[in-house]
Computed example of a mutant assay.
Amino acid sequence: MIYCEEDFLQLSGLQHFAFCRRQWALIHIERQWQENLRTVERDLFHHRAHNGEARERRGNLLILRDLSIVSPTLGISGKCDVVEFHQDSGGVPLYGEEGLWSPFPVEYKRGAPKTHQADELQLCAQAMCLEEMLCCTVAEGALFYGETRRRVSVLFTPELRQQVHTMTEEMHQLSRRGYTPKAKPSKGCNACSLKELCLPALMKGKDVEQYLRQAMEEEP
């Protein structure tokens, strides 16, 4: 299936979706958002990652920052923090550059590596966009974590690619329906910037009246 441009979804939403489908729907369908310390720190970290020349050459390495990408097949669009192009006889030609080049996407994350695959899925989706745009194969990329100051290599396996296909298809289905999934409380809810909008506590055996009564009693 090929999606029309007006139906494209934000690539960055894949990370939200992998972490929590309700969080994704609140942000990308209902257009709700709240800042907290984590989101502010994340935005500042990404700003520093993009704070440099959009195009930088280091010998056989070409670095592009804030690169716009798109995949009509997946129906997503977005930007890569950094794409390193390594000069490679098996690569692809680039406008304005001599020789052939192989892309290597690098995504910057504020914290540390996570127990789930949300970051890997987002990076894999970036690679799949690059493949579709450049008619090449991107086998590997990296996640750079600000807390550890280290890169983590990510192989774009068939399993990871299939997860991207499955999740983006589900995102489009929910978007077409305008449907926001119900909350499924987890440990991650406490750090979520949308906790007060999502109200996951309502799903723990309390009805709305009980929750509001308790909230009013807790107010000073």
Results as ranks from 00 to 15, higher is better:
residue 8 F to L: 13
residue 10 Q to H: 14
residue 11 L to G: 01
residue 14 L to I: 09
residue 16 H to N: 11
residue 19 F to A: 14
residue 20 C to R: 12
residue 24 W to L: 12
residue 25 A to M: 11
residue 26 L to K: 04
residue 32 Q to N: 06
residue 37 L to E: 15
residue 39 T to A: 03
residue 43 D to L: 07
residue 46 H to N: 11
residue 50 H to F: 07
residue 52 G to R: 14
residue 52 G to W: 11
residue 53 E to I: 06
residue 58 R to S: 10
residue 60 N to S: 13
residue 71 S to D: 02
residue 74 L to R: 04
residue 77 S to Q: 13
residue 78 G to I: 04
residue 79 K to V: 04
residue 85 F to T: 02
residue 87 Q to L: 06
residue 92 V to W: 02
residue 100 L to R: 15
residue 102 S to G: 01
residue 103 P to C: 04
residue 114 K to C: 08
residue 114 K to N: 13
residue 115 T to N: 08
residue 116 H to T: 14
residue 117 Q to L: 12
residue 118 A to G: 11
residue 118 A to H: 08
residue 119 D to Y: 01
residue 119 D to T: 00
residue 121 L to C: 02
residue 123 L to E: 04
residue 124 C to W: 02
residue 125 A to P: 06
residue 126 Q to G: 03
residue 127 A to M: 05
residue 131 E to A: 06
residue 133 M to P: 05
residue 133 M to A: 05
residue 140 E to L: 09
residue 141 G to Y: 05
residue 142 A to L: 01
residue 142 A to I: 01
residue 143 L to H: 05
residue 144 F to M: 09
residue 145 Y to D: 04
residue 147 E to Q: 13
residue 157 T to W: 08
residue 158 P to G: 11
residue 161 R to F: 01
residue 165 H to N: 09
residue 171 M to P: 10
residue 176 R to W: 09
residue 186 S to E: 11
residue 194 L to R: 06
residue 196 E to A: 14
residue 197 L to V: 12
residue 199 L to R: 15
residue 204 K to T: 10
residue 206 K to C: 06
residue 214 Q to A: 15
residue 216 M to Q: 15
residue 216 M to E: 15
